[in-house]
Design a protein around this nucleic acid. Sequence first.
DNA 1: TCGTAAATGGAACAACGCTCCGCTTCACTT
DNA 2: AAGTGAAGCGGAGCGTTGTTCCATTTACGA
Lengths: 199, 199
Amino acid sequence: MAVADEDGGASARPKRADAVRNQQTLLAAAAEVFVTSGVDAPIREIAKRAGVGMGTIYRHFPTRADLVVAVYRHQVEACAEAGPALLAEEESPFTALERWVDLFVDFLVTKHGLADALRSDSGGFEALHAYFLDRLVPVCGQLLDAAVGAGEARPGIEPYELMRGVGNLCVGRDDDSRYDPRRLVDLLLRGLRGTRSSS
Amino acid sequence: MAVADEDGGASARPKRADAVRNQQTLLAAAAEVFVTSGVDAPIREIAKRAGVGMGTIYRHFPTRADLVVAVYRHQVEACAEAGPALLAEEESPFTALERWVDLFVDFLVTKHGLADALRSDSGGFEALHAYFLDRLVPVCGQLLDAAVGAGEARPGIEPYELMRGVGNLCVGRDDDSRYDPRRLVDLLLRGLRGTRSSS
DNA sequence: TCGTAAATGGAACAACGCTCCGCTTCACTT
DNA sequence: AAGTGAAGCGGAGCGTTGTTCCATTTACGA
Protein backbone atom coordinates (compact mmCIF):
# COMPACT_ATOMS: atom_id res chain seq x y z
CA MET A 1 0.00 0.00 0.00
CA ALA A 2 0.87 3.66 0.06
CA VAL A 3 3.14 3.39 -2.91
CA ALA A 4 0.07 3.36 -5.17
CA ASP A 5 1.06 3.91 -8.77
CA GLU A 6 3.72 6.56 -8.28
CA ASP A 7 1.88 8.37 -11.04
CA GLY A 8 0.67 11.92 -10.98
CA GLY A 9 -2.92 10.79 -11.11
CA ALA A 10 -5.24 9.51 -13.79
CA SER A 11 -2.87 8.37 -16.51
CA ALA A 12 -3.94 9.13 -20.02
CA ARG A 13 -2.28 5.91 -21.17
CA PRO A 14 -1.27 3.01 -19.02
CA LYS A 15 2.43 2.38 -19.18
CA ARG A 16 3.65 -0.78 -20.73
CA ALA A 17 4.21 -3.63 -18.35
CA ASP A 18 7.88 -4.14 -19.16
CA ALA A 19 8.53 -0.46 -18.60
CA VAL A 20 7.10 -0.59 -15.11
CA ARG A 21 9.04 -3.76 -14.40
CA ASN A 22 12.28 -2.17 -15.52
CA GLN A 23 11.63 0.89 -13.42
CA GLN A 24 11.30 -1.22 -10.29
CA THR A 25 14.38 -3.25 -11.20
CA LEU A 26 16.33 -0.06 -11.70
CA LEU A 27 15.28 1.38 -8.37
CA ALA A 28 16.44 -1.73 -6.56
CA ALA A 29 19.70 -2.00 -8.49
CA ALA A 30 20.52 1.67 -8.05
CA ALA A 31 19.91 1.41 -4.32
CA GLU A 32 22.38 -1.46 -4.06
CA VAL A 33 25.00 0.28 -6.13
CA PHE A 34 24.61 3.53 -4.21
CA VAL A 35 25.40 1.71 -0.99
CA THR A 36 28.59 0.18 -2.32
CA SER A 37 29.83 2.83 -4.73
CA GLY A 38 28.10 6.01 -3.64
CA VAL A 39 25.66 8.16 -5.55
CA ASP A 40 28.33 9.05 -8.07
CA ALA A 41 28.51 5.49 -9.27
CA PRO A 42 28.88 5.19 -13.05
CA ILE A 43 25.64 4.86 -14.93
CA ARG A 44 27.08 1.85 -16.68
CA GLU A 45 27.52 0.06 -13.40
CA ILE A 46 23.91 0.59 -12.41
CA ALA A 47 22.76 -0.49 -15.82
CA LYS A 48 24.81 -3.64 -15.65
CA ARG A 49 23.60 -4.48 -12.18
CA ALA A 50 20.02 -4.03 -13.28
CA GLY A 51 20.60 -6.00 -16.47
CA VAL A 52 19.39 -3.20 -18.70
CA GLY A 53 20.96 -0.82 -21.19
CA MET A 54 22.06 2.68 -20.34
CA GLY A 55 19.46 4.12 -22.62
CA THR A 56 16.79 2.63 -20.40
CA ILE A 57 18.10 4.49 -17.40
CA TYR A 58 18.20 7.79 -19.23
CA ARG A 59 14.70 7.18 -20.47
CA HIS A 60 13.29 6.67 -17.01
CA PHE A 61 15.50 9.13 -15.17
CA PRO A 62 16.82 11.89 -17.43
CA THR A 63 19.20 13.27 -14.82
CA ARG A 64 21.11 11.68 -12.01
CA ALA A 65 19.14 13.71 -9.50
CA ASP A 66 15.92 12.20 -10.81
CA LEU A 67 17.26 8.75 -10.18
CA VAL A 68 18.57 9.57 -6.73
CA VAL A 69 15.30 11.17 -5.70
CA ALA A 70 13.33 8.21 -6.94
CA VAL A 71 15.54 5.81 -5.06
CA TYR A 72 15.22 8.03 -2.02
CA ARG A 73 11.44 7.88 -2.01
CA HIS A 74 11.51 4.20 -2.74
CA GLN A 75 13.82 3.64 0.20
CA VAL A 76 11.71 5.69 2.57
CA GLU A 77 8.74 3.59 1.62
CA ALA A 78 10.61 0.32 1.97
CA CYS A 79 11.99 1.39 5.32
CA ALA A 80 8.57 2.38 6.56
CA GLU A 81 6.99 -0.88 5.49
CA ALA A 82 9.84 -2.95 6.85
CA GLY A 83 9.24 -1.71 10.39
CA PRO A 84 6.01 -3.57 11.19
CA ALA A 85 7.16 -6.53 9.14
CA LEU A 86 10.31 -6.95 11.16
CA LEU A 87 8.38 -6.55 14.38
CA ALA A 88 6.12 -9.37 13.33
CA GLU A 89 8.74 -11.80 12.12
CA GLU A 90 11.39 -11.31 14.75
CA GLU A 91 11.25 -12.99 18.10
CA SER A 92 12.79 -10.07 19.98
CA PRO A 93 11.60 -6.51 19.45
CA PHE A 94 15.12 -5.25 20.01
CA THR A 95 16.48 -7.46 17.27
CA ALA A 96 13.78 -6.05 15.02
CA LEU A 97 14.93 -2.57 15.95
CA GLU A 98 18.52 -3.47 15.20
CA ARG A 99 17.69 -4.83 11.81
CA TRP A 100 15.55 -1.83 11.06
CA VAL A 101 18.33 0.56 11.99
CA ASP A 102 20.57 -1.38 9.66
CA LEU A 103 18.19 -0.74 6.81
CA PHE A 104 17.99 2.85 7.90
CA VAL A 105 21.76 3.24 7.64
CA ASP A 106 21.73 1.83 4.13
CA PHE A 107 19.16 4.42 3.34
CA LEU A 108 21.17 7.25 4.86
CA VAL A 109 23.98 6.64 2.43
CA THR A 110 21.60 7.54 -0.33
CA LYS A 111 20.16 10.42 1.63
CA HIS A 112 23.49 12.09 2.20
CA GLY A 113 24.52 11.75 -1.39
CA LEU A 114 21.24 13.37 -2.22
CA ALA A 115 22.23 16.62 -0.59
CA ASP A 116 25.16 16.84 -2.98
CA ALA A 117 23.20 15.91 -6.06
CA LEU A 118 20.49 18.41 -5.26
CA ARG A 119 22.22 21.54 -4.08
CA SER A 120 20.52 23.46 -6.85
CA ASP A 121 16.95 22.63 -5.95
CA SER A 122 17.14 23.02 -2.19
CA GLY A 123 13.42 23.65 -1.98
CA GLY A 124 12.60 20.21 -3.27
CA PHE A 125 15.10 18.78 -0.88
CA GLU A 126 13.34 20.28 2.12
CA ALA A 127 10.07 18.80 0.97
CA LEU A 128 11.63 15.38 0.70
CA HIS A 129 13.17 15.73 4.12
CA ALA A 130 9.83 16.57 5.66
CA TYR A 131 8.24 13.59 3.96
CA PHE A 132 11.04 11.45 5.24
CA LEU A 133 10.44 12.51 8.85
CA ASP A 134 6.68 12.24 8.73
CA ARG A 135 6.89 8.76 7.37
CA LEU A 136 9.71 7.28 9.39
CA VAL A 137 9.53 8.76 12.86
CA PRO A 138 6.28 6.93 13.71
CA VAL A 139 7.70 3.65 12.49
CA CYS A 140 10.81 4.10 14.57
CA GLY A 141 8.62 4.98 17.53
CA GLN A 142 6.64 1.80 17.10
CA LEU A 143 9.78 -0.33 17.16
CA LEU A 144 11.23 1.60 20.04
CA ASP A 145 8.07 1.33 22.12
CA ALA A 146 7.96 -2.38 21.53
CA ALA A 147 11.55 -2.82 22.63
CA VAL A 148 11.02 -0.68 25.70
CA GLY A 149 7.80 -2.47 26.48
CA ALA A 150 9.60 -5.80 26.36
CA GLY A 151 12.21 -4.47 28.74
CA GLU A 152 14.91 -4.77 26.09
CA ALA A 153 15.68 -1.08 25.76
CA ARG A 154 16.07 1.77 28.18
CA PRO A 155 13.14 4.16 28.18
CA GLY A 156 13.51 7.90 27.85
CA ILE A 157 14.68 8.09 24.27
CA GLU A 158 12.47 9.70 21.68
CA PRO A 159 12.28 8.19 18.19
CA TYR A 160 13.39 11.43 16.59
CA GLU A 161 16.39 11.56 18.89
CA LEU A 162 17.44 8.07 17.97
CA MET A 163 17.07 8.65 14.25
CA ARG A 164 18.90 11.91 14.49
CA GLY A 165 21.70 10.28 16.41
CA VAL A 166 22.09 7.50 13.91
CA GLY A 167 21.91 10.01 11.11
CA ASN A 168 24.64 12.14 12.59
CA LEU A 169 26.88 9.16 13.02
CA CYS A 170 26.63 8.59 9.30
CA VAL A 171 27.72 11.98 8.06
CA GLY A 172 31.12 12.93 6.85
CA ARG A 173 32.35 9.63 5.55
CA ASP A 174 33.60 9.79 1.97
CA ASP A 175 35.24 6.60 0.85
CA ASP A 176 37.23 6.95 4.05
CA SER A 177 37.98 3.44 5.15
CA ARG A 178 39.12 4.61 8.58
CA TYR A 179 35.59 5.47 9.63
CA ASP A 180 32.83 2.90 9.52
CA PRO A 181 29.59 4.48 10.73
CA ARG A 182 28.01 1.10 11.18
CA ARG A 183 30.40 0.24 13.97
CA LEU A 184 29.46 3.42 15.79
CA VAL A 185 25.78 2.80 15.31
CA ASP A 186 26.27 -0.64 16.72
CA LEU A 187 27.78 0.93 19.81
CA LEU A 188 24.89 3.33 20.10
CA LEU A 189 22.38 0.51 20.03
CA ARG A 190 24.39 -1.45 22.53
CA GLY A 191 24.06 1.55 24.79
CA LEU A 192 20.35 1.75 24.17
CA ARG A 193 19.97 -1.82 25.31
CA GLY A 194 21.85 -0.86 28.47
CA THR A 195 23.14 -3.27 31.06
CA ARG A 196 21.20 -6.42 30.58
CA SER A 197 20.91 -6.95 34.34
CA SER A 198 18.98 -3.75 34.84
CA SER A 199 15.73 -5.27 33.66
CA MET B 1 55.74 40.77 3.69
CA ALA B 2 53.74 38.06 5.30
CA VAL B 3 53.76 35.85 2.25
CA ALA B 4 57.39 35.03 2.95
CA ASP B 5 58.46 32.04 0.94
CA GLU B 6 55.41 29.84 1.34
CA ASP B 7 57.93 27.18 2.22
CA GLY B 8 57.95 25.04 5.31
CA GLY B 9 61.11 26.70 6.53
CA ALA B 10 64.77 26.30 5.78
CA SER B 11 64.80 24.62 2.38
CA ALA B 12 67.52 22.06 1.90
CA ARG B 13 67.72 23.05 -1.75
CA PRO B 14 66.38 26.24 -3.25
CA LYS B 15 63.74 25.60 -5.85
CA ARG B 16 64.51 26.42 -9.40
CA ALA B 17 63.47 29.86 -10.49
CA ASP B 18 61.19 28.71 -13.29
CA ALA B 19 59.42 26.38 -10.91
CA VAL B 20 58.42 29.09 -8.48
CA ARG B 21 57.48 31.32 -11.40
CA ASN B 22 55.20 28.67 -12.77
CA GLN B 23 53.70 28.08 -9.36
CA GLN B 24 52.74 31.74 -9.08
CA THR B 25 51.40 31.78 -12.62
CA LEU B 26 49.32 28.71 -11.87
CA LEU B 27 47.87 30.21 -8.72
CA ALA B 28 46.77 33.30 -10.60
CA ALA B 29 45.40 31.38 -13.56
CA ALA B 30 43.52 28.92 -11.37
CA ALA B 31 41.97 31.75 -9.41
CA GLU B 32 40.65 33.32 -12.61
CA VAL B 33 39.30 30.07 -13.94
CA PHE B 34 37.65 29.20 -10.63
CA VAL B 35 35.72 32.45 -10.74
CA THR B 36 34.35 31.82 -14.21
CA SER B 37 34.04 28.04 -14.31
CA GLY B 38 33.94 26.99 -10.67
CA VAL B 39 36.37 24.81 -8.78
CA ASP B 40 35.46 21.83 -10.93
CA ALA B 41 36.94 23.45 -14.00
CA PRO B 42 38.87 21.03 -16.22
CA ILE B 43 42.57 20.81 -15.51
CA ARG B 44 43.23 21.41 -19.18
CA GLU B 45 41.50 24.74 -19.03
CA ILE B 46 43.63 25.91 -16.14
CA ALA B 47 46.77 24.66 -17.83
CA LYS B 48 45.90 26.48 -21.02
CA ARG B 49 45.10 29.68 -19.22
CA ALA B 50 48.42 29.51 -17.39
CA GLY B 51 50.27 28.58 -20.55
CA VAL B 52 51.76 25.45 -19.05
CA GLY B 53 51.34 21.73 -19.55
CA MET B 54 49.06 19.56 -17.49
CA GLY B 55 52.00 17.69 -16.10
CA THR B 56 53.20 20.89 -14.49
CA ILE B 57 49.98 21.27 -12.57
CA TYR B 58 50.07 17.71 -11.32
CA ARG B 59 53.66 18.19 -10.27
CA HIS B 60 52.90 21.23 -8.14
CA PHE B 61 49.47 20.18 -6.92
CA PRO B 62 48.98 16.42 -6.91
CA THR B 63 45.28 16.63 -6.10
CA ARG B 64 42.63 19.13 -6.91
CA ALA B 65 42.21 19.91 -3.23
CA ASP B 66 45.87 20.87 -3.03
CA LEU B 67 45.39 23.37 -5.80
CA VAL B 68 42.21 24.79 -4.34
CA VAL B 69 43.76 25.19 -0.92
CA ALA B 70 46.81 26.89 -2.37
CA VAL B 71 44.63 29.29 -4.32
CA TYR B 72 42.61 29.88 -1.19
CA ARG B 73 45.61 30.90 0.86
CA HIS B 74 46.93 32.95 -2.00
CA GLN B 75 43.65 34.77 -2.27
CA VAL B 76 43.44 35.45 1.44
CA GLU B 77 46.87 36.97 1.29
CA ALA B 78 46.10 39.02 -1.80
CA CYS B 79 42.88 40.24 -0.27
CA ALA B 80 44.60 41.21 2.95
CA GLU B 81 47.33 43.11 1.16
CA ALA B 82 44.91 44.80 -1.21
CA GLY B 83 43.08 46.47 1.65
CA PRO B 84 45.66 49.07 2.65
CA ALA B 85 46.74 49.47 -0.97
CA LEU B 86 43.24 50.39 -2.11
CA LEU B 87 42.85 52.75 0.81
CA ALA B 88 45.98 54.54 -0.28
CA GLU B 89 45.27 54.78 -3.97
CA GLU B 90 41.58 55.59 -3.90
CA GLU B 91 40.29 59.06 -3.34
CA SER B 92 37.26 57.97 -1.37
CA PRO B 93 37.51 55.40 1.43
CA PHE B 94 34.10 54.07 0.54
CA THR B 95 35.15 53.39 -3.03
CA ALA B 96 38.13 51.55 -1.63
CA LEU B 97 35.77 49.50 0.49
CA GLU B 98 33.60 48.75 -2.53
CA ARG B 99 36.51 47.57 -4.57
CA TRP B 100 37.79 45.50 -1.71
CA VAL B 101 34.45 43.80 -1.26
CA ASP B 102 34.50 43.04 -4.95
CA LEU B 103 37.79 41.22 -4.53
CA PHE B 104 36.35 39.51 -1.50
CA VAL B 105 33.43 38.17 -3.51
CA ASP B 106 35.78 36.76 -6.11
CA PHE B 107 37.55 35.05 -3.31
CA LEU B 108 34.34 33.64 -1.84
CA VAL B 109 33.67 31.70 -4.99
CA THR B 110 36.83 29.78 -4.33
CA LYS B 111 36.07 29.51 -0.67
CA HIS B 112 32.69 27.92 -1.20
CA GLY B 113 34.01 25.48 -3.72
CA LEU B 114 36.62 24.61 -1.18
CA ALA B 115 34.07 23.23 1.22
CA ASP B 116 33.01 20.74 -1.43
CA ALA B 117 36.51 19.76 -2.43
CA LEU B 118 37.51 19.22 1.17
CA ARG B 119 34.63 17.41 2.78
CA SER B 120 37.00 14.64 3.75
CA ASP B 121 39.50 16.71 5.67
CA SER B 122 37.13 18.90 7.60
CA GLY B 123 39.74 19.50 10.27
CA GLY B 124 42.06 21.19 7.84
CA PHE B 125 39.16 23.22 6.60
CA GLU B 126 38.45 24.63 10.03
CA ALA B 127 42.06 25.66 10.37
CA LEU B 128 41.93 27.48 7.06
CA HIS B 129 38.72 29.17 8.05
CA ALA B 130 40.27 30.45 11.25
CA TYR B 131 43.26 31.74 9.34
CA PHE B 132 40.92 33.41 6.94
CA LEU B 133 39.09 35.27 9.73
CA ASP B 134 42.20 36.28 11.63
CA ARG B 135 43.74 37.72 8.53
CA LEU B 136 40.81 39.45 6.89
CA VAL B 137 38.61 40.82 9.66
CA PRO B 138 41.20 43.44 10.71
CA VAL B 139 41.65 44.54 7.11
CA CYS B 140 37.93 44.90 6.63
CA GLY B 141 37.78 46.83 9.89
CA GLN B 142 40.42 49.22 8.70
CA LEU B 143 38.53 49.97 5.51
CA LEU B 144 35.25 50.24 7.34
CA ASP B 145 36.64 52.61 9.96
CA ALA B 146 38.09 54.80 7.26
CA ALA B 147 34.78 55.00 5.45
CA VAL B 148 32.90 55.72 8.64
CA GLY B 149 35.47 58.26 9.66
CA ALA B 150 35.05 60.07 6.36
CA GLY B 151 31.30 60.14 6.87
CA GLU B 152 30.73 57.91 3.87
CA ALA B 153 29.32 54.94 5.74
CA ARG B 154 26.88 54.53 8.58
CA PRO B 155 28.52 53.56 11.84
CA GLY B 156 27.40 50.66 13.97
CA ILE B 157 28.41 47.81 11.72
CA GLU B 158 31.13 45.47 12.81
CA PRO B 159 33.64 44.17 10.25
CA TYR B 160 32.77 40.57 11.02
CA GLU B 161 29.11 41.33 10.48
CA LEU B 162 29.75 42.88 7.11
CA MET B 163 31.94 40.05 5.95
CA ARG B 164 29.48 37.51 7.18
CA GLY B 165 26.66 39.29 5.41
CA VAL B 166 28.52 39.40 2.14
CA GLY B 167 29.53 35.80 2.59
CA ASN B 168 25.99 34.68 3.16
CA LEU B 169 24.80 36.50 0.08
CA CYS B 170 27.22 34.43 -1.92
CA VAL B 171 26.13 30.96 -0.89
CA GLY B 172 23.91 28.65 -2.80
CA ARG B 173 24.54 29.78 -6.31
CA ASP B 174 25.56 27.00 -8.64
CA ASP B 175 25.75 28.10 -12.25
CA ASP B 176 22.30 29.49 -11.63
CA SER B 177 22.03 32.50 -13.87
CA ARG B 178 18.94 33.72 -12.09
CA TYR B 179 20.87 34.66 -8.99
CA ASP B 180 23.78 37.05 -9.13
CA PRO B 181 25.23 37.56 -5.66
CA ARG B 182 27.16 40.58 -6.82
CA ARG B 183 23.96 42.50 -7.42
CA LEU B 184 22.82 41.77 -3.89
CA VAL B 185 26.14 42.75 -2.43
CA ASP B 186 25.91 45.98 -4.33
CA LEU B 187 22.58 46.64 -2.68
CA LEU B 188 24.04 45.88 0.71
CA LEU B 189 26.82 48.37 0.23
CA ARG B 190 24.38 50.94 -1.03
CA GLY B 191 22.56 50.48 2.24
CA LEU B 192 25.76 50.81 4.18
CA ARG B 193 26.42 54.13 2.56
CA GLY B 194 22.98 55.22 3.63
CA THR B 195 21.24 58.41 2.54
CA ARG B 196 23.92 60.71 1.26
CA SER B 197 22.30 63.74 2.91
CA SER B 198 22.81 62.37 6.39
CA SER B 199 26.41 63.56 6.51
C1' DT C 1 81.72 25.75 -20.48
C1' DC C 2 79.70 21.48 -19.33
C1' DG C 3 77.15 17.83 -16.84
C1' DT C 4 73.28 16.66 -14.38
C1' DA C 5 69.11 16.60 -12.12
C1' DA C 6 64.97 19.16 -11.84
C1' DA C 7 61.20 20.64 -14.49
C1' DT C 8 58.32 20.65 -18.42
C1' DG C 9 54.79 19.59 -21.98
C1' DG C 10 51.58 16.97 -24.14
C1' DA C 11 50.65 12.46 -26.29
C1' DA C 12 48.34 8.47 -24.69
C1' DC C 13 45.26 5.72 -22.01
C1' DA C 14 41.18 5.00 -19.18
C1' DA C 15 36.76 6.10 -17.35
C1' DC C 16 32.66 8.36 -17.77
C1' DG C 17 28.28 11.03 -19.44
C1' DC C 18 25.15 11.26 -22.84
C1' DT C 19 23.04 10.63 -27.52
C1' DC C 20 21.16 8.18 -31.23
C1' DC C 21 19.07 4.74 -33.94
C1' DG C 22 18.05 -0.02 -35.55
C1' DC C 23 15.73 -3.68 -33.41
C1' DT C 24 12.43 -5.85 -30.09
C1' DT C 25 8.30 -6.30 -27.65
C1' DC C 26 3.93 -4.94 -26.07
C1' DA C 27 -0.93 -3.67 -26.41
C1' DC C 28 -4.72 -2.84 -29.02
C1' DT C 29 -7.75 -3.57 -33.11
C1' DT C 30 -10.24 -6.37 -36.31
C1' DA D 1 -5.36 -15.18 -34.19
C1' DA D 2 -3.04 -12.26 -36.83
C1' DG D 3 -1.69 -7.66 -37.96
C1' DT D 4 0.09 -3.14 -36.87
C1' DG D 5 1.73 1.07 -34.81
C1' DA D 6 4.47 2.80 -31.49
C1' DA D 7 6.58 2.51 -26.98
C1' DG D 8 10.51 0.72 -25.20
C1' DC D 9 15.08 -1.23 -25.37
C1' DG D 10 20.17 -2.01 -25.87
C1' DG D 11 24.61 -0.62 -26.59
C1' DA D 12 27.95 1.22 -30.00
C1' DG D 13 29.98 5.59 -30.52
C1' DC D 14 31.36 10.34 -29.66
C1' DG D 15 33.05 13.96 -26.82
C1' DT D 16 34.99 15.30 -22.38
C1' DT D 17 37.85 14.83 -18.42
C1' DG D 18 41.30 12.82 -15.05
C1' DT D 19 45.80 10.91 -14.71
C1' DT D 20 50.16 8.88 -16.08
C1' DC D 21 54.58 8.73 -18.31
C1' DC D 22 58.72 9.85 -20.51
C1' DA D 23 61.54 12.23 -24.18
C1' DT D 24 63.03 16.76 -24.22
C1' DT D 25 64.26 21.13 -22.38
C1' DT D 26 66.17 24.20 -18.95
C1' DA D 27 68.37 26.09 -14.92
C1' DC D 28 72.07 25.86 -11.73
C1' DG D 29 76.54 24.38 -9.60
C1' DA D 30 81.28 23.09 -10.58
